[in-house]
């Protein structure tokens, strides 16, 4: 009985699936295949390497500081870094005094309450504050950016496929639209052609435009490529600040486990010796 019912149910599912398949196959065969413009013009991320790549990867402090400088002087005008605190900058090699100075001189003030009147006001940032958002709220952000919302960058390298390589490709990928790009996919007002962006047209104007846009404190030659790599590295750190701990712990754990598993294997062979391995 169970098998009879099962057989009928099975036939039912197979039948409906075959009807679905045939109707899908007919559509597939008869309808012309339209490759979307996005997939034709979209480019895969550029091949770029960072010191943090691989199981032994660690951050290049000098590069992170340069990347922070790019963030501060270029990105911070529109993008927040809400999950990172000024004090975290000590992890990338700034001293406590430097961090205090960076917080104190930050171009955006932190929302606060006037101690005299109790009314909303702002104050200078301190080391324990998170980076303040450049906009009071989403509406203000959209109003200032042609209705586009500049995302918070704290997690951007983990929130996009290929993370830092994507950020680097995007920053260095601005170009003139190709001649064969259909008119409806050409960038409209306030949009910019970038083949590394999902729908090819991005609202963000090219942020890093010329060599020497940032004057690096460590004297590194600030080419566009260098700045894009540095800020991508910095944003890798903001998204995954514990990466070095993770790699270090991981290597120790794997080393330990290899020895422990080797011992466990020997114990297993030893215990089974008389039963199996005579």
């Amino acid at each position: 009985m169970v098998r009879l019912i099962g057989f009928l149910v099975g036939l039912g599912f197979v039948g409906v699936l075959m009807i679905s398949f045939i109707s899908g196959a007919v559509t597939f065969a008869t309808e012309e295949k339209v490759e979307s413009v996005e997939s034709r013009f979209h480019k895969p991320v550029k091949d770029v390497h960072f010191a943090s790549d691989g199981p032994f990867g660690h951050y290049d402090r000098q590069q992170l500081q340069r990347g922070f400088q790019v963030y501060k002087e270029v990105c911070a005008a529109c993008h927040g870094l809400g999950l990172v605190a000024f004090r975290n900058l000590q992890d990338i090699g700034y001293s406590e005094a430097e961090v205090k100075a960076i917080a104190n001189q930050w171009q955006i003030e932190v929302p606060s309450i006037d101690p005299a009147t109790g009314e909303a006001s702002t104050r200078k940032a301190i080391a324990s504050d998170n980076f303040p958002s450049p906009y009071a709220n989403e509406t203000a952000a959209r109003a200032a950016n042609n209705n586009a919302l500049p995302p918070d960058l704290s997690l951007i390298t983990k929130a996009r496929h290929h993370g830092p390589a994507y950020v680097y490709s995007l920053l260095t990928g601005y170009q003139n639209p190709p001649a064969n790009l259909p008119a409806e996919n050409r960038p409209g007002t306030g949009l910019h052609y970038n083949p590394y962006f999902a729908n090819l047209n991005i609202a963000m104007p090219q942020p890093i435009t010329s060599d020497g846009q940032v004057t690096y404190a460590d004297g590194t030659n600030a080419t566009v490529d260098q700045m894009a790599q540095d800020v991508a590295a910095f944003l890798t750190w903001t998204a995954e600040p514990k990466l070095e701990n993770r790699h270090r712990t991981g290597i120790a754990v794997i080393f330990f486990l290899l020895i422990a598993t080797g011992l466990a294997y020997m114990a297993y062979r030893n215990i089974w010796a008389e039963k199996k391995y005579r």
Binding site: L257, A260, A264, Y265, A267, Y268
Partner: peptide, 8 residues
């Protein structure tokens, strides 16, 4: 013993 090795 065998499970110990498998766990490793």
């Amino acid at each position: 013993a065998k499970d110990g090795f498998g766990l490793g």
